[in-house]
Computed example of a mutant assay.
Amino acid sequence: MSKAGSEYRAGDYESAVATLAAATVDENDYLDLAYLLGLCYARLHRFDEALLYLEQVVTQGEGDARALQCRLTLAYVYAATGRSKLAEYELTKLMESSLETPQVYSALGHATWKQGRLDEGLSWYSKALKLDPENPTALNGYGYLLACAGKDLDKAVSCCRKALNSDPGNPVYADSLGWVYLKLGRLPEAGSYLRAAAKTLHDNDELQEHLAAFEKAVPLR
């Protein structure tokens, strides 16, 4: 188990999975194995396998720190697989356990927006920024949703630019900034950031919608 833990912390998730698969553990240590396997599979985007183990830990270890981490990872997995309502459920359970962090609030912002509750999403991102004004995930999400709502676009640019400045290679942040510029009608900047994002986010539906909107807007200028 210790070897697998070291491999996980080093980012070698495939090796950690292989080590855990070969491990023999007794009943008392099984949740430790399930916990680490669930995290590894989530990192590898093998979401069905991640759910199998994460849900076991949450069910059997209710309330401890390990279960809380698994709930947060479950929320990520559900969001990544389009199950925003389930993601919101897990995040709400975390709040009931007094885990109120910028990460949880930002994830709730995304989950509620995905369910069509844009104003509620903005509220959650705003709460995240009150806890951590420099949090890049919250900055990006808040700026993006402001643009979606057509509200305070100057603020939206500022938020998305700060997020991208903190992580210049992040294609999601580049897409958000491009989207805001498109909403402002600043097409050269919009095209630059959207095309940069497209180099990495090949199959992202939202980005494809943004690119289509950009291409539609260009002839009108």
Rank of each mutant, 00 (worst) to 15 (best):
A16P: 02
L37M: 04
K3F: 15
K216L: 15
V172Q: 05
S126F: 07
E215Q: 14
L131P: 06
Y142D: 03
A80C: 03
L153W: 02
L33R: 08
L108H: 02
V57P: 09
S84Y: 11
Q115T: 14
A212H: 11
H45Y: 03
S98M: 11
T81C: 00
A21T: 14
K127I: 11
W124P: 10
D29F: 15
L201C: 13
K85V: 05
R83G: 06
S123E: 13
K93H: 15
D132V: 05
P188K: 01
K85Y: 11
D48Y: 00
P102W: 01
S6W: 05
R46N: 13
K199Y: 08
V77R: 04
E90G: 12
E215G: 14
Y53F: 05
V172Y: 14
L164G: 03
L131A: 07
K199F: 01
C160T: 04
Y78K: 12
Y105D: 05
P102M: 02
A21Q: 08
L108Q: 13
P219T: 11
A190R: 00
A42H: 09
E209P: 00
A156V: 00
T101C: 14
L146Q: 10
M1F: 11
P168H: 07
E134N: 13
Q115D: 12
L52P: 03
L36S: 06
F47M: 05
A190K: 00
A42I: 02
A65P: 15
L201K: 07
K85R: 15
S97T: 10
H45Q: 07
K151N: 10
A87W: 02
A147I: 07
R71E: 09
L54F: 03
